[in-house]
Simulated assay, not measured.
Amino acid sequence: MPPIIFKDDDFHGHDHQQDDPMVITVEIKNYAVKKVLVDQGSYVDILYWATYQKLQLLDTAMVPYDEPIYGFSGEQVSTHGYIDLYTVFREGTQTKTIPIRFLIVDAPTSYNVLLGRPSLNTLGAVVSIPHLAMKFPSPSGDILTVHCDQRLARECYMASLRPQLPIQQTNHIKRPPDSDIALSSEDLDPRVGRDVRLEPVEETSPLELPNGHSINLGTVFEF
């Protein structure tokens, strides 16, 4: 496999003076899902409940996991369960597909999906924030690059700074050009409140991952 390196031309943003989060697009169930936050500090992959519904996934497709989780100040965040979904990462016509076990969380957020360490490790991804790019080996051994959408990254960040105002915008779930799956009408997704990042504090329960490993998922979390 070729070495993974980053060069100046890997930066595809519009503003080099940046400290933006890594926000990308992935494909799930034949939908292109934007506003996907790559969070190397998260030990779990999260699919938000509003996104789950807009993907038209059946409730029966998830494994129940309904223990609530709590923030530092006692805020309660509801979980609905978890689901295994094949997720596609694309550069042009080349793709890499991996199974991801998503925890389904009902929480106010600017994002549709949060990708944590389990999926990034399975993908073999290396993230460079200065280049706003993520690289990983393809099944054929080539190195693929996924670029951050800097405009959407800033839109999400600014939305999280205004918790007092309801934010109405499209959910950024679209059908890929080569998909034959019909897309429902584009919904408005009101997002109120601040983005949450979940970290375990005390009690945990095991959650099995598709690769055979397991993580201890906290039932008490800190924001």
Rank of each mutant, 00 (worst) to 15 (best):
V26Q: 01
P118F: 12
L57N: 05
V33S: 08
V126A: 14
L198Q: 00
S205F: 04
H12P: 05
V146L: 03
P2S: 13
K35V: 11
Y52E: 01
T204P: 00
R117M: 10
G141Y: 00
D19T: 00
T97A: 02
L115V: 11
S128Y: 01
A182S: 13
L37I: 13
L103W: 01
C148Y: 05
Y86L: 15
T109C: 03
F221T: 07
S205V: 12
I4M: 05
S140P: 00
Q53I: 15
S205M: 10
L103K: 00
P118E: 04
S119H: 07
E222I: 07
A182N: 13
I129Q: 09
L152H: 07
N121A: 06
Y43V: 15
E75L: 15
L123A: 06
R154I: 03
K174T: 09
N211W: 02
T170P: 08
I83C: 10
K135V: 05
M1L: 08
V201M: 09
H172M: 14
L132A: 02
P200R: 01
L114S: 10
A153W: 03
D19S: 03
D9F: 01
D19N: 05
A32V: 07
S205H: 08
A182F: 13
Y111C: 12
I28L: 06
I173C: 00
I100C: 00
P3A: 07
A32D: 11
G13I: 11
G71Y: 01
M134L: 11
P206D: 02
R154G: 08
S140A: 06
I28T: 11
V33M: 06
F72T: 15
F223G: 11
N121V: 14
K54N: 15
K35D: 11
G71N: 05
D142K: 13
S110F: 02
P3E: 12
F6L: 10
L144K: 01
P21V: 09
S179R: 07
E202I: 13
D149P: 05
D106V: 00
F11D: 02
M134N: 03
P163Q: 03
D84E: 10
R151F: 12
P176F: 03
G81I: 01
E199R: 14
G116I: 00
D59I: 09
V36Y: 12
H80V: 05
S179T: 08
Q76C: 15
I24N: 00
A159F: 00
P118Y: 10
V146H: 02
D45H: 08
K7N: 10
Q168H: 14
Y65R: 14
P68A: 14
K34F: 09
V23Y: 04
L183H: 07
D8P: 08
R194K: 14
P21K: 02
Y65P: 06
P130L: 01
P200I: 09
R197L: 08
R151M: 10
P3I: 03
S128E: 04
K135D: 04
S214N: 03
S184F: 07
D189Y: 04
L161E: 11
Y157M: 15
P108T: 04
S119F: 07
F72Y: 14
H16Q: 12
S73L: 14
V105L: 04
L207S: 02
R154K: 14
L47E: 05
L207E: 00
D10Y: 09
A133L: 03
E75F: 15
E155C: 13
D66C: 11
N211S: 02
R151T: 14
R175D: 06
T122G: 04
